[in-house]
Design a protein around this nucleic acid. Structure first.
Lengths: 233, 233
DNA sequence: ACAATAAACTGACCGGCAGTCATTATGTGC
DNA sequence: GCACATAATGACTGCCGGTCAGTTTATTGT
């Protein structure tokens, strides 16, 4: 009798529906401003029902984060598949990141959202934690593989850890974009509609006299240069 | 008659007292978990009074952020003054950052706290915005000056923008530490007491098999190498 | 077809917190 | 010691995350 299985599938489906609906709102309003009530309304359920599928708001947010990370990894992998030379592939990682930031600014913000810890509150399920760790590990792994590829080709110094480079690139990109968000929000607190690269560029130029994308590319170049056997000065 | 002036001074003093008290709590509990009531209690005032000195919680948080940034800039400048050679001074910037992270983990968290924007809510005062921008500009400026010094000595390539390097270093360091916080909080959601370098290192080694400080230093080296005239491989 | 049982769903309610405001207390000038 | 301004208060409002007793809907056994 497949009823139990169908029930299970339906339950998973509902969960996905809620996640999708929540993502839609959160990408517009941000995690903090979005209320559980709003999410419930948008998928035509009551607030209580949401809590049948997610223990609390934090778990819901975490689940969305996992979804977004998976999505980004997919994009990055898709872009990598199209390319043949190692140089292109190394460059492609940064480009994917920038592309994601441009095309999905809301999701990007989710990706970089760092939840504040409340020591008193009971923490989210171990399972979800493991999922998140696994998902981000997979993401870094993709970068790691490209670096490793470069090592095999003798193009990248073998005395460094490929994962370390992956994380460095990732970290510095995040940091750079965050600093830009900071500058933008300092400059235009509460007035803007949504994050986009043109706006970012404008502020970047206005306040620091330089192009944002160019800065990001230069930073990547800096990291890349230091890992290549023959740096391209 | 100096009464008005004294009143003014007293008002400023109160504001500082509130800020100090708030900082003390926030460094322990974080910005989100700290309530206005708690802050009020800790400086023996009522909640309403706090709102006479700060328009809302966001403005209070922003004022604290400015205070923390000023403090960090002071530390960085103090460390720079002690050193004579350019190489030491360049290195010192990164070390100051790490030192601040180790010694004032709560303040460090404030420094990296990115407030979510609520478009509906009226934004904070223009004056405060300008203060924040001026303060962070001053911070980057310190880095910029060291880079410029290196250029004058012919040790740093002149075809790059010193401010850009300053921001890059700052951004990548922030990003790196944030990613570590992420990993740590993924691994140990809600269980830890407070941020400290030993704990960070433990997680860094456990999950990525590498030392956190070493990673940070390597990242700085990467950026530095790409700006030096003769990279030190 | 229908009762028994389980599973999904609801929304009124609770507690906590940001922010408000009518009222009270304190200090200053005359 | 009175008039006035300024500082401070805390009860109150509205919002939101989270709960739970009760209701609706689906499934199973006979």
């Amino acid at each position: 009798m497949g009823t139990a299985e169908r029930k299970q599938r339906e339950k998973e489906l509902r969960k996905k529906q809620i996640l999708k609906a929540a993502e839609k709102i959160i990408t517009r309003k941000g995690m903090l401003s979005t209320t559980m009530e709003e999410i419930a309304e948008s998928c035509e359920l009551s607030k209580g029902t949401i809590y049948l599928y997610f223990k609390n708001k934090e778990e819901l947010n975490l689940s969305i984060l996992i979804m977004v990370l998976e999505n980004f990894t997919r994009i990055m992998e898709k872009n990598l598949k199209k390319l043949n030379t190692f140089e292109e592939r190394l460059r492609s990682i940064g480009e994917s990141y920038l592309e994601f930031y441009k095309n999905y600014p809301g999701d990007f913000k989710i990706m970089n959202h760092n939840p504040e810890q409340h020591p008193e509150i009971e923490h989210s399920s171990r399972e979800l934690e493991r999922d998140l760790l696994a998902t981000s590990s997979k993401l870094w792994g993709v970068v790691e593989n490209v670096i490793r590829e470069g090592m095999d080709l003798g193009l990248i110094r073998k005395d460094i850890d490929p994962l370390e480079i992956g994380i460095s690139l990732w970290a510095s990109s995040n940091g750079m974009i965050q600093i830009m968000e900071h500058i933008r929000s300092d400059a235009q607190r509460g007035v803007h509609e949504k994050s986009n690269i043109e706006e970012m560029d404008e502020y970047s130029r206005r306040f620091m006299g330089m192009d944002f994308e160019q800065m990001l590319r230069n930073l990547w170049a800096a990291v890349n240069n230091s890992i290549l056997v023959k740096p391209a000065y």
